[in-house]
């Protein structure tokens, strides 16, 4: 599925639309250059799940955990990772046992150490706007895309 996004609020709205059809557990990769709106999309995603606090960029902390009711969600940003081996220091293996939603920015920096994606979200510049392309990578991801189309 492909979306043309004109503004940051529209990017958040797309994140919210995705969140409403998402079921835990699941793994979403977000690929795109600096400033293409990855964290903005995740902000909309978390807000739609009911999280009301600030959704900060996890570039420095690498990992921001969120709890909304019984649901656990992890927002990772692997930009500063020099080696996938460093995922071990984030306690990644513990997160995977958590029946959680995991959203990963810059997944290519963690390749080999990350769980496979159910869904890939590719973001790119399109003039002053952004283009977002979603690709299912598993049965769970295909089911998610189906619900997204019908939503």
């Amino acid at each position: 599925m492909q979306f043309d996004i004109e503004s940051a609020p529209a990017q958040e709205a797309l994140g919210a639309r995705l969140a409403r059809v998402c079921r835990a557990p699941g793994v979403i990769y977000l690929r795109g250059d600096l400033g293409t709106g990855k964290t903005t999309l995740v902000r909309g995603f978390l807000r739609a799940l009911g999280y009301s606090g600030a959704v900060k960029s996890p570039t420095y902390t690498l990992l921001e955990p969120y709890s909304v009711g019984a649901l656990r969600c992890y927002h990772l940003d692997l930009y500063r990772l020099a080696d996938p081996e460093e995922l071990e220091y984030l306690g990644l293996r513990d997160l995977l046992d958590d029946h959680a939603l995991i959203l990963v920015e810059w997944p290519e920096r963690g390749s080999g150490g990350l769980p496979p994606a159910d869904l890939e979200v590719n973001l790119s510049y399109a003039g002053l706007g952004r283009q977002v392309r979603m690709v299912a990578r598993s049965a769970t991801g295909r089911e998610l895309m189906r619900r997204m189309e019908n939503a």
């Binding site: 964290t39 600030a54 900060k56 960029s57 570039t59 420095y60």
Partner: peptide
């Protein structure tokens, strides 16, 4: 007060990258 998204230093680092400087 607190940052709602990118910290100031992070904005510096990322803008530097956009300008073609190393990160």
């Amino acid at each position: 007060g607190d940052s709602l998204d990118d910290a100031a230093g992070e904005a510096f680092d990322k803008t530097a990258k956009l300008l073609g400087l190393p990160y």
